[in-house]
């Protein structure tokens, strides 16, 4: 029964990886920018959440309502002030700038908050679970995370397909210069896409922190790799592929966990590398899913 339990937990974990990957995938799809600081943006979101809930004494869920729009604004400004300029300079510059952020953020966080893990309290939800059989119980929070992953994917697809800003993002992904000829400032669209990517990352960061029982400054170095692996295993195309990729990674980690406590990360990475080798063509291009 252990293996059944591991499989169920793996699928649930996949939901968390999928949420983590959505923002990375969106930013690459629209702007062709790989945000090397994606994991650190997640961590930053979790810290913002902790800050608001400790200073204002509010609930985690309420803090999300503040943190997510705030991170959207930060992403928007970062794109307009720095990345837009970098984009014109070629492929290297945006990579280097996001890498710069990935170095700056954790070190600032340690300086301000120390290395200690900060709790993200969610009350009874943390331990609530549904007992399926003697050996299998499904945590309510992981289940909720997977459900939110599915909801976010559906919402993101509806947004891209049905709304004007969403269509603008797809058009900007195809051809930003021509979008400008339509009377739409593509820089604005890019900035909104990056804002959305930051907002999604922050949300993912909060969920990740909840799962880990708290957040530490260097979590981002781990989560950026998870998010990236989910995107690549899923095949860089649709958000549903990303969910599938997240689940594959989740399964690899939880099943490996049965054989040794130190194995999950290694096996997760090896499964990713294996998928990379086995895919008939490398990953060369991508589009925003429609």
């Amino acid at each position: 029964m252990n293996i059944v339990n591991a499989l169920i937990q793996g699928v649930l974990l996949g939901g968390l990886f999928a949420i983590s990957a959505l923002g990375l995938s969106l930013a690459f799809g629209v702007l062709k920018v790989v945000n090397l600081a994606h994991g650190q943006i997640m961590t930053l979101g979790a810290y913002f959440s902790v800050m608001t809930l400790t200073s204002l004494g509010m609930d985690v869920w309420l803090s999300i309502l503040i943190v997510v729009p705030a991170m959207f604004a930060i992403g928007y400004v970062v794109q307009r002030t720095m990345l837009q300029r970098a984009l014109r300079m070629g492929e290297l510059a945006p990579l280097m700038i996001t890498f710069g952020f990935s170095v700056i953020i954790p070190n600032v966080l340690i300086s301000v908050f120390t290395n200690n893990k900060l709790q993200i309290p969610i009350g009874d939800l943390a331990v609530a679970s549904i007992q399926v059989s003697d050996s299998i119980s499904i945590g309510v929070m992981p289940l909720l995370t997977l459900a939110i992953a599915v909801i976010l994917i559906v919402l993101l697809q509806l947004f891209l397909a049905r709304t004007r800003p969403g269509r603008n993002m797809r058009a900007a992904a195809d051809d930003p210069q021509t979008l400008s000829l339509m009377g739409v400032n593509y820089r604005n669209v890019y900035a909104m896409a990056m804002g959305l990517a930051f907002a999604l990352a922050a949300l993912a960061g909060v969920f990740f922190g909840i799962r880990q029982g708290g957040v530490t400054p260097f979590d981002g170095q781990l989560t950026v790799l998870f998010a990236f692996e989910a995107v690549i295993i899923g095949g860089l195309g649709s958000p549903w592929g990303t969910l599938a990729g997240g689940i594959v990674l989740g399964l690899a980690q939880t099943v490996a966990g049965l054989f040794g406590p130190e194995l999950p990360l290694l096996v997760g990475n090896l499964v990713f590398l294996l998928v990379l080798v086995l895919r008939p063509t490398g990953i060369v291009k991508s589009k925003v899913a429609s």
Binding site: D174, D175, Q177, T178, L179, S180, G183, K287
Partner: peptide
């Protein structure tokens, strides 16, 4: 800027059509 000119009523049909391929 280009997008402001488009809003003022100048519209270019570019060489090579440049349709949005995924739309």
């Amino acid at each position: 800027q280009d997008f402001e000119r488009a809003r003022q009523g100048i519209s270019l049909v570019p060489e090579g059509r440049r349709l949005f391929a995924s739309l």
